[in-house]
Each structure stands twice: as structure tokens, then as C-alpha cells.
Design a protein around this nucleic acid. Structure first.
Lengths: 146, 146
DNA sequence: CAGTATCCCCCCTGATACTG
DNA sequence: CAGTATCAGGGGGGATACTG
């Protein structure tokens, strides 16, 4: 994590993002946060992660400004972990991973959870990369420049 | 990787995607592939990854149907690794990671690489999650259903 | 319930040497 | 150049026990 310093310094935003949240657990924790989970125990139970590892991950994510802690809303003495604006900015990442999984990793018969528009209940649209003038871009229509 | 079996079986596409490409190197390799790299040495040099690890990763990714091998286009005896349709489907994931990194992980003075529309040279639009009827959705406007 | 502290093991990873 | 084989280390991760 603090290991691949050269990648962080590479000037590639993808590498830097992965350095921040590309470990085994972070994105799963963040997914659960988008799902409404806030408490240590909620994350721990849902993920089957050990408490020690979860505590470390949560602390790292707070340090990185992705989560912040707040007093428990139920009046108990414990903390809650809520996503900051920076953490909420990961929503498209989670959605992109979800849609790729739905499309390529499930058999036709298999069922999976679905992300829907809360207001109308319809599934959300497939993400698409668009040009400044609104055209849908394939990866081969793009290029990385310095 | 084949370790978190319970997560793969959870029926959550996010978890299943992470199980497939959520390790330390896969997404970086895939990023380089989108960048036009195809040869073992190109990946190895660009990432600073050891040959052994790269060979393992590449083999896994081929097994998972994300890359496929092709004879070298320059007539040499070696293979090239090219993204399948399934691998190309990860483009929005890479773009989402890139955009998050650009927005939250770089200081104002720092420069980073940029993804542009090849045709016009303009940066691509920020990804947005949209409802079936075209509204832009915040994460709180959505919900995961069974 | 929400953590922290400790121990231990596995496997990921890098380094090196070897082959086609 | 493109791998494979082998070895050694280091850290992430689980299990357990303990504390507030």
C-alpha cells in the first residue's frame, strides 16, 4: 500500500487511485457504506472480515479522507463511519464494477442484486464514456496524453 | 483470489468483479492494455513488476477470459496479449478510477495524464450514473435490491 | 458492542538463475 | 525477448483472547 511508491508518483490517476483503495477490502467496505452501513459490526458481519483487519482498514480510510467518524446516532458511545464527499465520489467506480460483473460474471440463470433508481424502481443505465460533445466513446476512440 | 469464495457466491456483482480483478496488479495491467501495450516486456517494464508475478497474472487473466493471446504481429515467435470483449468491458471501471483520482488525489499544482477524445482532443466527460429516463443520479438516489 | 493486542501462517512478491 | 523454476522474506490476514 505504501509500498508501490513509484506508481503513486507515476502521475497516472489510475495508479494513484488503486494505491488508495485498490487493496482487498476497501472497495467492499465502501460498497457496504453506499448500502447504508455505518457501524463497525455491520461491516464486520456483512464481510466476514476479521475485526483486526477491519479496524486497520477503517483507520486507513479515515486517514485518507474517505470516511469520517461521527457519534452514534442511536445514543450509544460508539462511532459511526460515514463517507466523506471524497468517499462518495467513488460511486461511479462501484457502479462500473457492478455493471461489469452483471454483464460478464453471471450466468443467464443466476440471479444477482440490482441497483435501481430509488424514485421509480428502474435499474440504472449502463455507464458510458462520453466526449465533450456528447458522443458515446469506445476505448479505442480515446487516448491518454501527458 | 480464489480465497474469498463466500464473496463470489454472495450474489453481489461488485464482490464478484473484485474477486476477478481486485488484486494488486490486474487493473494496472489492464490499464496498460487500454494504453496500447500488448507484449510481455512492455507490461513488465512499464509496471516494474517481476517477471514471475506478471506471468502468473497474465495467465490468470487469460483463464478468466479477460485477455487472449495472439501470435506476435511483428513476426517474432512470441505472444501478444490482447483484451477480449470482456476485458474491454472494463473500460468504464478504469475511467471511473482515473476520474476519481484526478479529482481527489492530485494537488492543484500537480500535473497528471489525461484521457481525451482521440478525434477532437478534448478531455472526456465526467462519468455520471443516470436513471432510465436520463436523470443524473446521486448515490443516495439509488438503492440495491435483491 | 467496539475495538486492541498477540501469535502464527500463508502467499504474494522480488531476486536470481535457467531455458527456448 | 519471453518466459519458467526455485528460494527466501515480509506483510497481510485469520483466530483468539483481552479491555472499556
Amino acid at each position: 500500500m505504501v509500498k508501490r511508491v513509484s506508481l503513486w508518483d507515476s502521475g497516472c490517476p489510475v495508479a494513484r487511485s488503486l494505491d488508495a483503495i485498490g487493496d482487498w477490502w476497501s472497495l467492499l467496505i465502501i460498497r457496504d457504506a453506499f448500502d447504508g452501513k455505518r457501524r463497525f459490526g455491520e461491516f464486520q458481519q456483512g464481510l466476514g472480515i476479521s475485526r483486526g483487519v477491519l479496524a486497520t482498514r477503517l483507520r486507513d480510510l479515515v486517514t485518507r479522507g474517505i470516511f469520517e467518524t461521527a457519534p452514534a446516532s442511536d445514543g450509544t458511545a460508539y462511532r459511526e463511519y460515514v463517507l466523506t464527499a471524497k468517499g462518495q465520489g467513488l460511486f461511479p467506480v462501484i457502479v462500473a464494477l457492478r455493471q461489469w460483473g452483471e454483464e460478464f460474471l453471471f450466468g443467464l440463470g443466476e440471479t444477482h442484486s440490482l441497483l435501481v433508481d430509488r424514485e421509480r424502481g428502474d435499474p440504472v443505465e449502463r455507464l458510458s464514456v462520453r466526449s465533450a460533445d456528447g458522443r458515446s466513446l469506445d476505448w479505442s476512440d480515446t487516448q491518454v496524453t501527458a
